[in-house]
């Protein structure tokens, strides 16, 4: 479904991606793990068109979208839920979700308001509240819900667990597994490797702009190197 071929990105001076290749098949949840600064967000932003690659290709369902503008990328059904819960703070929860529909560009919605409220009931309770006044967990739910309103065929999630309490993380990830059950294809970026490897089918390990390991998530969980470096057990 998504195929990335030797993608290279450098910002002035820094080489963030040094030839990354990666595949996501329809219906899969693929995790991308790696330390802070590895280039995970850069990869998602390049797919989404916020960052222009220096070389390499991004192909989504046989269409090259390399270097396309962000709004053009959303037309294909690739929706990114960015790192750091970027809600529209001075708009209500409902308005945030409505803005998400812009990404449809006339495509049929795959999730309506009701579906989002079923996955995240708290959003329905808070629908008239300003997004900026929500708790961190609620904001994370809102940005995921906003992405769903855009009719994703592939959802890119950037560190959904960042800065959240364990109880809230569990809620967010149970919602993600529900979405996965329903057949949504997800590319999940996480620093929390344990979470990511539990929630995904396959995974890639990114270090300093390069994929250093990949495989079935269950296997990577058992991998001694991965365990030592990312799972916090020796």
């Amino acid at each position: 479904m998504l195929s990335i071929d030797t993608l290279k990105v450098h910002y002035s001076g820094i080489q963030a991606l040094r030839g990354v290749s990666l595949e996501v098949t329809k219906g899969e949840t693929v995790a991308l793990i790696g330390p802070n600064g590895a280039g995970k967000s850069s990869l998602l932003n390049t797919i989404s068109g916020l960052v222009k690659p220096n070389s390499g290709n991004v192909v989504f369902e046989d269409t090259a979208i390399t270097g396309a503008a962000p709004w053009a990328v959303t037309k294909t059904g690739i929706l990114q839920v960015p790192e750091g819960r970027r809600v529209f703070a001075e708009m209500t929860v409902l308005e945030n979700l409505q803005v998400g529909q812009t990404a449809l560009h006339g495509r049929e919605p795959t999730y309506g308001l009701d579906d989002v409220f079923r996955v995240f009931p708290i959003l329905q309770e808070r629908r008239e509240q300003m997004a900026g006044s929500l708790s961190g967990g609620q904001q994370q739910m809102l940005v995921i819900g906003r992405g769903l309103m855009g009719g994703p065929r592939l959802l890119l999630l950037d560190e959904p667990s960042l800065g959240l309490a364990p109880v809230i993380i569990a809620q967010v990830f149970s919602a993600l597994s529900e979405l996965k059950q329903q057949g949504l294809t997800i590319l999940l970026v996480e620093q929390n490797a344990h979470l990511a490897l539990t929630a995904s089918d396959r995974a890639y390990v990114l270090e300093q702009g390069q994929i250093v390991k990949s495989g079935a998530s269950a296997d990577l969980r058992e991998d001694p190197e991965v365990a030592a470096l990312y799972l916090g057990q020796g």
Binding site: R86, E90, M91, V99
Partner: peptide, 23 residues
């Protein structure tokens, strides 16, 4: 209006607005 919502979204957070399909 939905146009106004997009204006406010860009005002609020331009990157997030672009990721939601707004030019």
């Amino acid at each position: 209006t939905s146009f106004g919502r997009r204006v406010r979204a860009v005002t609020d957070n331009e990157h997030a607005a672009m990721l939601m399909g707004i030019n």
